[in-house]
């Protein structure tokens, strides 16, 4: 019985060491994937914030007071902080981008495995998914209103005047949407990796 146990123990040791090697290798690739996704989230939200934050357009529009007089040229401008939905969009992206930078710093400078930190970061990732998605939703709704207008409440479309502003805004919203998907991917990756690690035993 004892000898049997010893044999099985020896076999287990060999297996365990090999398994450990595989595990560390797996963890390394998982970590590099995570870094990639985090960097992607950071870059996308950063570019979206900058693109939208610097977005403004001034245009001279002929404005006719009365049909008899010649039209007066009035300069009008579109700025991102004129609409509260866009302010929310920029703020949510700025928060997400700074959080992504902070999480990269925290995760990849801490030595060894810090379980509490890892858990905290996954929890905050989930919050970021909600934040960035809702910011995108708000900005998309207002941008769509700018493109199409709404005849029922007499809100006129403004993108025919501010074409450049609208195009840039659309690009920023698209980038931010991809950034939100990167955050979503991070949550999925972490649950997948913990599932993998738990199913090995």
């Amino acid at each position: 019985m004892e000898s049997q146990n010893k044999v099985s123990m020896g076999g287990m040791d060999g297996l365990e060491s090999r398994e450990k090697e595989m595990k560390t290798a797996n963890q390394r690739t998982a970590k590099s994937h995570e870094l990639l996704a985090r960097l992607l989230a950071f870059v996308l939200t950063f570019v979206a914030t900058i693109l939208f934050g610097l977005n403004k357009q001034t245009k001279v529009v002929p404005f006719q007071l009365t049909p008899t007089l010649p039209p007066i040229n009035v300069p009008v401008s579109a700025k991102w902080h004129y609409l509260s939905a866009f302010v929310y969009f920029v703020a949510s992206n700025a928060i997400a981008c700074s959080y992504a930078a902070l999480s990269i710093l925290l995760l990849f400078t801490s030595k060894g495995e810090n379980k509490i930190l890892a858990k905290m970061i996954i929890f905050l990732d989930t919050l970021m998914v909600a934040l960035v998605f809702s910011g995108n939703g708000a900005a998309t709704a207002i941008a769509l209103m700018g493109y199409k207008g709404n005849s029922h409440v007499q809100w006129k479309e403004v993108c025919s005047v501010f074409g450049k502003f609208c195009d840039r805004g659309a690009v920023a919203i698209g980038l931010s949407q991809l950034g939100a998907l990167a955050f979503l991917l991070l949550v999925l990756m972490s649950s997948l990796s913990s599932n993998k690690r738990s199913s090995k035993y």
Partner: peptide
């Protein structure tokens, strides 16, 4: 969560303008 959060943001943005 992404779906519901974006729907909340969408409706909230329009409702705020209203």
């Amino acid at each position: 969560l992404g779906l519901v959060a974006s729907a909340t943001g969408t409706a909230g943005g329009v409702a705020y303008v209203g």
